[in-house]
């Protein structure tokens, strides 16, 4: 009863003194993103009639550098995307062709899924691009509203996060457009620990417009203890 009462007001992982929405969000960002990471994941797009699975690996350094590679299916195999600050390039290995793409592509859906390029390349972060306030407490959840800061390039004006008081990590995000309409919801589950970082490894994105469709992202392996030199995020690695 005492533990339940305590968890209503602050998260044990954050420490008893800290109970600001900023601290919750910063903690979750730090746990789930780290400064640098290498990730192997699979993404399955499911509708009642068909499903499609992509295998992807991705390396991210801070919020400015990212390199992702598609390993399957065959049509997209080897396609890489490099992001350096605002600039982005795609590389098509079959043609050995590198093309610069507009950073507005971050808004585009990732290979027909309900995730965007921004979700995969992680160019925006909740802790830096949004301001936060508690909405309400439920027994085991803290609900935090994230509103986009002026000048931020993040794509969602408002996100509402449901954080577990047990481990201070999010279990659900609801994404709203400019009109305040709910557009999609992300459910986060199956918390695992990699290199000392606790992170959800099963993410299910459901668009509000189509209840029968969903995209499931499974993280198979995440390395946080990596030292990726800046030169790794370069033309050489992109066109390798």
């Amino acid at each position: 009863m005492k533990r339940k009462l305590i968890s209503r007001f602050f998260c044990v992982a954050l420490g008893a003194q800290v109970n600001s929405p900023e601290a919750w969000v910063k903690y979750a960002d730090k746990e789930m993103r780290g400064d640098q990471s290498e990730t192997q994941m699979s993404m399955t797009i499911t509708t009642p009639d068909w499903s499609r699975t992509l295998d992807i690996s991705s390396s991210v350094k801070k919020r400015t550098m990212a390199l992702s590679t598609i390993h399957s299916p065959a049509k997209e195999k080897g396609i890489k995307t490099l992001r350096l600050n605002n600039q982005m390039w795609n590389y098509f290995p079959k043609l050995k062709r590198k093309v610069a793409v507009s950073s507005s592509m971050l808004l585009a859906s990732w290979m027909g899924s309900d995730f965007t390029n921004d979700d995969v390349l992680k160019s925006s972060t909740l802790s830096e691009d949004y301001s936060h306030r508690f909405l309400q407490d439920q027994d085991a959840l803290k609900i935090i509203e994230h509103k986009i800061k002026d000048g931020s390039k993040a794509m969602w004006p408002k996100i509402v996060g449901h954080f577990s008081s047990k481990d201070c990590l999010p279990r659900r995000y609801d994404y709203f457009d400019k009109e305040g309409t709910l557009k999609r919801s992300l459910m986060l589950d199956d918390i695992k620990t990699f290199d000392g970082h606790k992170t959800p490894t099963k993410l299910v994105m459901k668009p509000n417009s189509d209840e029968k469709k969903e995209t499931t992202l499974i993280y198979h392996k995440i390395k946080f203890n990596v030292d990726l030199p800046d030169e790794y995020f370069s033309e050489k690695e992109l066109t390798k």
Partner: peptide, 10 residues
């Protein structure tokens, strides 16, 4: 010019 006008429109 290359632009993603909308998540589904390039």
């Amino acid at each position: 010019l290359d632009q993603q006008l909308h998540s589904l429109w390039h």
